[in-house]
Amino acid sequence: MNALIRRGLKTLAAPGSHGIGIGAMKVAIAVIFLWIGALKFVPYEADSITPFVANSPVMSFFYEHPTEYKAHLTHEGELKPAERAWQTANNTYGFSTGLGALELVIGGLTLAGLVSRRAGLVGAGLAFATPFVTLSFLFTTPEAWVAALGDAQHGFPYLSGAGRLVLKDVAILAGAWLVLVDTARALLRDDKDLGETARLQPVTAAVIARKAA
């Protein structure tokens, strides 16, 4: 193996590189949750998740009229007062605000993991659990797949824009698991070190006492 390549591999394999990677993963997950969570307070983002929520067997009850959503969909950047009024009556914005608040909490806790392992453990756990819900949209949301409008490519495996947006959560799932495992190991190391320190303190005190005598 080339000496330069070997040196590069050793640098990448160093313990410090692992720490940088985990830290970067925490920041990346936090940015996704904080940014998208903040957007949930904006009407256009709330409108865009309507098909996912309306078709979800575990979320549709948050809406007042989930079966009527298709007639009231709008494009991003488009303002239709009548549809906006329907979305308000449907509790689209109320649900989106609650979801956004939850995502902000997850993002904040994950970011706090840079300085607090316990907070980070909770954040990583929630970040790991979230994709199980969002990825289920691939099975429950018709709009996640290219519609049969004449082209030969439609349905599975042809993801629509909405489906491609959901698929990214596979990376969040894997990344959150890595952060979760690393944080758990760090907490166990801390606990072990604390136990060792507590065990050694009486021994050290006895040694000092004997020397003093």
Rank of each mutant, 00 (worst) to 15 (best):
residue 110 T to I: 11
residue 70 K to P: 01
residue 128 F to C: 03
residue 138 L to H: 04
residue 134 T to Y: 12
residue 86 W to R: 06
residue 146 V to W: 09
residue 87 Q to I: 00
residue 73 L to C: 01
residue 53 V to P: 00
residue 99 L to Y: 12
residue 129 A to S: 07
residue 158 Y to G: 08
residue 129 A to R: 04
residue 27 V to P: 09
residue 31 V to G: 10
residue 30 A to R: 00
residue 133 V to W: 13
residue 70 K to A: 15
residue 71 A to Y: 10
residue 54 A to S: 06
residue 113 G to N: 00
residue 55 N to L: 06
residue 151 D to N: 15
residue 83 E to F: 15
residue 127 A to F: 07
residue 95 F to C: 00
residue 28 A to R: 05
residue 86 W to K: 04
residue 66 P to T: 00
residue 72 H to I: 07
residue 135 L to V: 06
residue 115 V to G: 08
residue 63 Y to A: 06
residue 156 F to N: 14
residue 28 A to Q: 09
residue 147 A to K: 05
residue 90 N to P: 02
residue 100 G to C: 06
residue 84 R to M: 13
residue 125 G to M: 08
residue 130 T to D: 11
residue 116 S to Y: 01
residue 112 A to Q: 01
residue 114 L to M: 10
residue 123 G to D: 00
residue 99 L to S: 12
residue 62 F to N: 04
residue 88 T to A: 12
residue 79 L to E: 09
residue 114 L to I: 06
residue 66 P to C: 02
residue 146 V to N: 07
residue 76 E to C: 02
residue 114 L to E: 03
residue 140 T to D: 01
residue 82 A to C: 09
residue 147 A to R: 07
residue 59 M to K: 10
residue 31 V to P: 04
residue 130 T to A: 14
residue 134 T to I: 14
residue 88 T to I: 05
residue 25 M to G: 12
residue 30 A to P: 08
